[in-house]
Amino acid sequence: MKEKPRNQVATNRKASHDYNIGETYEAGLVLTGTEIKSVRAGKINLKDGFAQLRQGELWLENVHISPYEAGNQFNHDPLRNRKLLLHKRELAKLAGIVKDKGVTVVPLKVYLKHGFAKVLIGVATGKHEYDKRETIKRREQNRELQRVLKNNF
């Protein structure tokens, strides 16, 4: 099994199964004090998360960050919406892309960079059921091929 990089906190493995991922962007994540402590501890779930443009700002929704265990009354709401930080031209480009029907923005990874939490977001279009089965079939064929090559050499 592959080990995750040292600074990577969470990945959304379901995103690549459910969506075709196009362009990706690195966005900053606005967090409170107890949220960043929970993120550093790896207590974040991206599974059902998505990003939405509202009034020229990008918001990360439906991402669960568990309350910090030693946080007392200053703890946060686990499912609150969090603002994503992007450059203005990146936001304008995303706004043009997301206008199309069937296109959404999903979080792919959360990682720490120079002490700050960053989110890798991707522009995604939904897969049909037959596309998902094709992806699974291709992955199994590649595994079988790697297994055969490993045994031969």
Rank of each mutant, 00 (worst) to 15 (best):
M1A: 14
M1Q: 10
K2R: 13
K2Y: 12
E3S: 12
R6Y: 12
Q8N: 07
Q8P: 01
V9T: 03
V9E: 00
V9G: 00
V9P: 00
K14N: 12
A15S: 12
S16E: 13
H17V: 12
H17I: 11
H17Q: 13
D18C: 07
D18K: 10
D18L: 15
I21A: 05
G22Y: 08
G22T: 08
G22E: 11
E23C: 07
T24E: 15
Y25P: 00
E26H: 12
G28A: 06
G28C: 04
V30R: 15
L31E: 03
L31W: 06
G33Y: 05
G33D: 12
G33T: 05
T34A: 10
T34K: 13
E35K: 03
K37F: 06
K37C: 05
S38L: 04
V39C: 08
G42M: 05
G42R: 08
K43A: 10
N45P: 02
N45W: 07
L46Y: 01
K47L: 09
D48K: 07
D48F: 03
G49R: 01
F50T: 00
F50Q: 05
Q52D: 14
L53D: 02
Q55D: 15
Q55C: 08
E57V: 04
E57T: 09
L58D: 02
L60F: 01
L60C: 02
E61M: 14
E61K: 15
N62A: 10
V63L: 04
V63Y: 02
H64S: 04
I65V: 12
S66I: 00
G71R: 02
N75L: 00
D77T: 12
D77M: 09
P78R: 08
R80N: 09
N81H: 11
N81G: 04
K83C: 03
L84M: 10
L85C: 06
L85D: 08
L86D: 05
R89N: 15
E90I: 02
L91W: 05
L91Q: 09
L91F: 04
A92K: 11
A92S: 13
L94P: 01
A95Q: 14
I97L: 15
K99G: 05
K99V: 08
K101P: 04
K101H: 11
K101N: 10
V103T: 10
T104S: 14
T104L: 07
V106N: 01
V106T: 08
P107C: 05
P107Q: 04
P107F: 01
L108R: 00
K109Q: 14
V110M: 10
V110G: 02
L112N: 04
H114R: 12
H114F: 09
H114I: 07
G115K: 06
G115N: 08
G115Q: 07
V119N: 01
L120R: 07
L120K: 03
G122N: 04
V123R: 00
T125Y: 08
K127C: 08
H128A: 14
H128E: 14
Y130K: 11
Y130W: 11
Y130N: 10
Y130P: 00
K132T: 02
R133M: 13
R133C: 06
E134F: 09
T135D: 14
I136K: 14
I136A: 14
K137I: 07
R139C: 09
E140F: 10
Q141W: 10
R143E: 14
E144T: 06
R147Y: 10
V148M: 15
K150P: 02
N152Y: 13
N152V: 14
N152L: 15
